[in-house]
């Protein structure tokens, strides 16, 4: 029963990804430019960080390979999250403008259905960048590559959960569109710094409010040591945060005020 539900949801997710893909490639030039632009943007940042670490080895235990792994897993996780669950990033707007109504008319669980609704074209660039960088520059063996692929799922779950929490702030603040955007930028920013540079209270902050260490610490440690235990910690953190996100969304939903805005899909 449970697996049948999961399979059913995967089928639905595939149908949404297909439709979103078709919708975006109606304007294929714009789509490819946006995806390629994001790829290039990531490359520039990565080159900067690799040179920075070579010039200033501030984290002695970290090599340029770790920096590439960190960027690769962050980008791939981010990409997977918003290729599939891209509507998370519009959640604050959907709530504040009363557009949840349309989603409530479908016979699906609201949140899990709603987040499938849109795709971020730039997320494709991130996803391709993440896997390409890891394959070409880290040159992993099969176990490392397999673990990397599994951990990108954990990172994607975390980013999706964080985006849901950020967007759900609109339930409590009225319009949290800008705040959600800033929080997401802060999250991705902290995720791309090596975890060892953060200590003390900041580290606790990065386990809780901005849970970046479940991207920049446990997955990297898991890949460095090929450690299943560290990978499980990463998954546990991501799933815990995703559970909190679901709770926050449905708690906030009780405060939802519907609207009558004119909108078109896709």
């Amino acid at each position: 029963m449970f697996f049948a539900k999961i399979l059913n949801y995967i089928r639905l997710a595939i149908a949404y990804v297909r439709l979103n893909w078709l919708s975006h490639i109606e304007y294929r030039n714009a789509f490819y430019i946006e995806a390629a632009g994001m790829f290039l943007n990531n490359v520039i940042w990565l080159v900067f960080w690799v040179y920075f670490f070579k010039a200033f080895p501030t984290v002695p235990t970290w090599t340029s390979s770790d920096v590439i792994t960190l960027w690769a897993i962050s980008a791939a996780g981010w990409g997977i999250a918003f290729v599939i669950f891209g509507n998370c990033r519009f959640l604050a707007n959907i709530i504040s403008t009363g557009q949840l109504d349309a989603w409530m008319l479908y016979p699906r669980h609201l949140l899990s259905h709603l987040i499938l609704g849109k795709m971020k074209p730039s997320a494709f660039g991130d996803m391709v960048f993440g896997f390409a960088m890891y394959l070409f520059f880290v040159r992993p063996d099969f176990p490392h590559l397999a673990l990397f692929c599994i951990l990108t799922v954990s990172v994607a779950i975390l980013f999706t959960g964080f985006s849901i929490v950020a967007g759900s702030l609109s339930f409590f603040l009225g319009n949290a569109e800008s705040l959600a955007l800033h929080l997401e930028f802060a999250m991705i920013c902290f995720c791309t710094y090596p975890a060892p540079i953060f200590e003390g209270r900041i580290r606790w902050l990065l386990y809780t409010v901005l849970p970046a260490l479940f991207v920049s610490y446990y997955p990297i440690e898991a890949l460095r040591n090929l450690s299943i235990e560290q990978a499980l910690y990463a998954f546990a953190g991501s799933l815990a945060f995703a559970s909190i996100a679901v709770y926050v969304f449905y708690f906030g939903l009780k405060r939802y005020e519907s609207g009558n805005l004119t909108v078109m899909r896709g």
Binding site: R11, L12, A15, Y16, L19, L22, S23, E26, Y27, D101, A102, Y106, P107, R108, H113, N260, L261, T262, V263, M264, R265, G266
Partner: peptide, 22 residues
Amino acid sequence: QRSQLWYHLPPEDTFELLSRIY
């Protein structure tokens, strides 16, 4: 004032999606 059809796609694509949703 609200459409469930996907703006950039033909109606048949939305029908296909709805068949999955329902």
